[in-house]
Amino acid sequence: MKVYIYKAYDKAGAKVDGQLEAISQAAALLALQNQGLLPSEIKEYKESAGDLFGNSKKVSLADLEFLTAELSLLLASGVRIDKGLDIIRRSKAQPALVRLLTAISRDIAKGQNLSQAMASHSDVFDPLYINLVELGEASGQLPEIFAKLAEDLKFRRDLQRKIISSLTYPFVILAVCILCIVFIFNFIVPKLSVLFSEPETLPWYTQALLGLSNWMQDYQVIMALAVVGSVFGIIHLFKQAKFLKIWQETLLKIPGLKSPVLTTERIRFNSALAMMLEAGLPIDKALDLAKGNIKNQVLQREMEIVRNKVKHGHSLSPSLKQTSLYPEFYVSLLEVGEESGNLAKVFDEIANRSRQEFETWTEKMTTLIEPLLILMMGGIVGGVVVVMLMSMVAVNDVGF
């Protein structure tokens, strides 16, 4: 089956656009006509082979949030799950999501539950998602489960966006700085060099400037290739499990990076635990699933130890106190929650406080990095300009 994107008009003359699956363009045209639509444009969706790093087009986090939020709304309105999937598929969903929904609908039509159909797509739905959906099916609370999952996915997307936005500005400043340096050493300094008839009599700083300019012109292509090769090399290294483990261990030892790493993982772990405990999962099962939300392997191992302790009868708070994820203050909150039997609310409170901590850290780092990078760019570019002016003054002094 192929995915076709269409634009059409309904019987009232209003514009309609969307997507549908069909064997051929003629079949897609016939399907639209059977719906009472007059197509003005219909074309097959051509999926890109991959992005810069070879990753194929797939369902994104935004697509998954859209699907989860829509399912929550439709199911809460009394729409059956198969009808809800069909409504979302016929909406303005991305083609990758359309194919996913088609596969899930096909499996449901064969008699599978929604959780079983989703489990066949482990690259999109993680074990936490699937287990909560299965729990919602058993308890009849699927709308509420999807609402909680949508909220969690929205936070994860906001977190991802904040991290990217906090890194974007420094990278832009760095790129501008590099472009300025390349422009100066390729176009400005070479024109300046024609003013000097006897290079050996020039001041040392002028000779260094001209020498650096000549070196960059001779080797800048090799430097560019080396940078590109380094980027691909780093990407390849991060795909190696051994290197990734060493990198994650190193992050937890660097003072400036340890705190945000722990805060991010604490948010993921506690928000997942809060959802599962509210849904009625036992604590050992919830710990096992929430552990999968943690990306850092060192912290994952610590949580596996906690799960085993709790499973064998140990108290939760003392066990979590022995991990790197919970400072003393949060352990005190957990002790209160454990005594009152309201752990879900405490885990949710810890997740919210950790979100505020991370947002504060992001704002501080962005505020600090911006002026430092501007000063660095101004120092480099301004230093080159000063050397050029001093060189011109030196030439005039020699000529005099």
Rank of each mutant, 00 (worst) to 15 (best):
Q160I: 03
G378A: 09
V393C: 05
S91K: 04
W361L: 09
G84C: 07
L101V: 11
D51K: 04
A394M: 08
I178G: 07
W215N: 12
N396R: 11
D107M: 10
A93K: 04
A394G: 11
Q322R: 15
I380N: 06
N34A: 15
V381W: 00
N296V: 05
P190K: 12
S230C: 10
A394F: 04
Y4G: 00
K15T: 12
K345W: 00
L38F: 14
K11N: 10
R156I: 07
T360D: 14
S317W: 11
E134L: 04
T250R: 04
E338L: 06
R106P: 03
L320K: 08
G54F: 01
M118N: 06
K258F: 12
T206Y: 01
G382S: 08
E302W: 02
M377C: 06
M365C: 03
L52K: 07
E338S: 10
A286V: 01
G341T: 00
L29P: 01
L128W: 03
E278I: 05
L61C: 03
L325C: 06
F155Q: 14
G18Q: 02
V387A: 13
V385H: 07
E151Q: 15
S122R: 06
G84D: 05
K154Y: 08
E44G: 06
A119T: 03
I369L: 11
G136P: 04
E359N: 13
T250E: 03
I283S: 02
N308C: 02
S197E: 15
A31E: 15
K239V: 10
R106D: 14
G280A: 09
L333C: 00
E44K: 11
G341S: 00
L167H: 06
G18T: 04
Y9F: 10
R266N: 01
W247A: 15
L174H: 03
S259Y: 11
V59L: 05
L71I: 09
V336P: 03
F238E: 09
E328N: 01
Q33G: 15
M377A: 10
D218L: 08
M388I: 13
